[in-house]
Amino acid sequence: MADPNKVDPIHQFQITDIVSFGEGGVSFTNSALFMVLSVGVIALYLLLSTQKRSLVPNRVQLISEMLYEFVAKMVSDSAGKAGMKFFPFVFSLFMFVLVANMFGMIPFFFTFTSHIIITFALALLVFVVVIVYGIYKNGLKFFKLFVPSGVPGYVLPIVVPIEVVSFLSRPISLSVRLFANILAGHITLKVFAGFIVTLGGLGFLGWLGALLPLVMTVAITALEFLVAALQAYVFAVLTSMYINDAIHPSH
């Protein structure tokens, strides 16, 4: 940090206060700013683009409708008609993660999905929703989830603990998958971009050498756009599948 040429790939994840409300109190941080921005962008886009309620949609409205139908199809394919009760939930998750990840691709923007606490909170929310709704809907039958049908009784002592562990690890895998992808991607980008700067400082040969990390940075940027969209999709798909477990526990 003392050396301006030295690139710190971790600095981008630093949370800084923008507005503090009193000493030791809650402060409005860059993380909070981008959460608010994400929600604002999602809500404004969806609401403004559909304001005219055109029977024949224009382009902006069409994108909103495609997002709606995309997630609606995802939910109904995974969790069936009964799962559509959770469509707004899955849609909110998908859009929140998607826009957060995409904001992250803009330089100097903070990516709050690179913080494990955020992804873990979202995953835990999914987990809690699944458990609470599953027990509310199916009562004790919900625990059939851990007893696969058609498995002979003598295997159950092995299968049931496996099922329980896999169920309990869901919030961890769900949150770490998103967090790790975004974090690793951003660090990789920063490191390669740092190579360009470092090599560029070495004169002409350095400039030549910097071409390689430059190409890599461009390629990784494209890859990161893919990852950003894909991870939002994966998060939403897995959420729909977990919700399906809550609705139809006996599989």
Binding site: I15, F28, S31, A32, M35, H115, I117, A121
Partner: peptide, 9 residues
């Protein structure tokens, strides 16, 4: 702080 803002947003 992040959890609070996440919950709100």
């Amino acid at each position: 702080g992040q959890l609070l803002w996440l919950a709100i947003t």
